[in-house]
Amino acid sequence: MPKYSLFVNGKTLQAEADADTPLLWVLRDHLNLVGTKFGCGVAQCGACTVHMNDVPLRSCSLPISAVGLNKIVTIEGLSEKGDHPLQKAWEELDVAQCGYCQAGQIMAAAALLKKIPNPTDKDIDDNISNICRCGTQVRIRKAIHVAAKKQVK
């Protein structure tokens, strides 16, 4: 199997995997970064969202051979102590129910806040398309607004 160097959460890491292995499974099975979740495998649900060069990416649909040394950030690397404004807002508003999709939701929201620091409801509608069957969307929206305000402070 070919060997790849990846730049994940500020570190260069090695993985030996078939060229077509999606980044998601490299993170989960080879690098033991299991915070990034598998939900559909076809870039629909967003549970596997990571950042590549600060842009949100559905990691289930990008093969390792295409990742190169682009800067990858996963939920484990979003902040050092779990104190990103979104993480704090998510806790404060008690957003999660089952919690499974929330890492992907937070990563999608973090990419949005990088692009638009104080998003409107329409910005949220246009940029977040992750699925949550528990139905936490109402609290997710509120948490994004709360986090945007925290960022300004």
Partner: peptide, 19 residues
Amino acid sequence: RVKDVDAYKIVTGQPLYGI
């Protein structure tokens, strides 16, 4: 109002699930 006991682990992507 009490937040979920796993809230911090959930938002930091710690291993919690069967998968």
